[in-house]
Simulated scan of single mutants.
Amino acid sequence: MEGSGSNKLLIVFLYTLFILPLIHATDFKYCNKKKEYAVQVSEVVISPDPIKKGQETSFTISAVTDKPLSEGKVVIGVAYFGWSVYSETGDLCTSLSCPVPAGDFTISYSQFLPTIAPPGSYTLTLKIQNGNKSELTCIKFDFSIGFFGFQVDV
C-alpha cells in the first residue's frame, strides 16, 4: 500500500492539531503548602476543557504514594465564587482497586454538569484520607464555566 505511510502521518498530524490542545494539565495547589503529604499529586487533567454545560466532565488526578493504600475516602468539594455548592465523599477502594500498591496511580472522577449551572469561577478541592481520616493529600484547582458553554442539538 503506497499511501498508507502518508495516511498515518496525516492522522498523527490531525490528532496533534485538534485533539492534544483540548487535553492539557490544569494548575493545582496543595491545600497546605507547608505540609508534606503522603500522596503527591503530579497532574490534574480536565476533559473536556473548556467545560461544557449539559455534558459529563472528567477530572483525572495522577499521583504517587510511597506506601500502599488499603482503605480510605475520597472527599470532593466544589465552591462557586467561594461558596460551597457541592460535596461528595466516596470510598477510595471503589475508585481504585485496593490495596493500591506503592508507586504511581490515577483517580478519575466524572460528573454530569447540568445546563442550568451558573457561569463563573469554581474551585474543586480533592482530599484523600486514610482509614483514620488523616489527610494523605489535599489539592485545589480552579475551573470556569462560560456563559455560552453548552451545546445545542439541531
Results as ranks from 00 to 15, higher is better:
V45S: 05
S58V: 15
I51R: 13
Y30F: 13
P21L: 11
P21Y: 04
Y80G: 04
I19S: 12
I19H: 03
S84M: 10
V85F: 06
L14S: 07
Q40T: 10
K67F: 02
E71N: 13
A63V: 03
S47T: 15
T65D: 03
V74R: 02
P50H: 03
S70Y: 05
V41E: 08
K34I: 12
K53M: 04
P68D: 07
I46Q: 05
V85G: 05
Y80T: 05
H24N: 11
F81P: 04
A63E: 07
P50K: 10
A25H: 08
P50A: 00
I51G: 05
D27Y: 00
Y37M: 08
G82M: 04
V78T: 15
I23L: 14
E36S: 12
F59T: 15
D27S: 13
F28D: 06
F28L: 10
A38N: 03
A38Y: 01
Y37N: 09
W83F: 11
E43R: 15
K53T: 00
V85D: 10
K29G: 01
T57L: 12
K67S: 13
K34H: 08
P48F: 08
L69D: 12
I19Y: 11
T16C: 11
D27N: 06
F28T: 08
F18Y: 13
E56F: 15
E43M: 14
V78S: 06
V44S: 01
K35W: 03
L20T: 15
K52C: 09
V41A: 08
V41P: 14
E56C: 04
Y80M: 12
L14E: 12
K53W: 00
K35V: 12
Y15Q: 01
G82P: 06
F59N: 02
I61Y: 02
G82K: 10
F59A: 10
Y80S: 02
K34A: 12
V41H: 01
H24R: 15
A79E: 03
V64C: 02
A79N: 12
I46E: 01
E71M: 05
I46P: 00
P48A: 09
L69M: 08
H24M: 02
G77H: 12
P50Y: 05
V41Q: 04
L17M: 12
D27P: 01
F18T: 01
V74T: 08
S47V: 15
K34D: 08
S62I: 07
K67M: 08
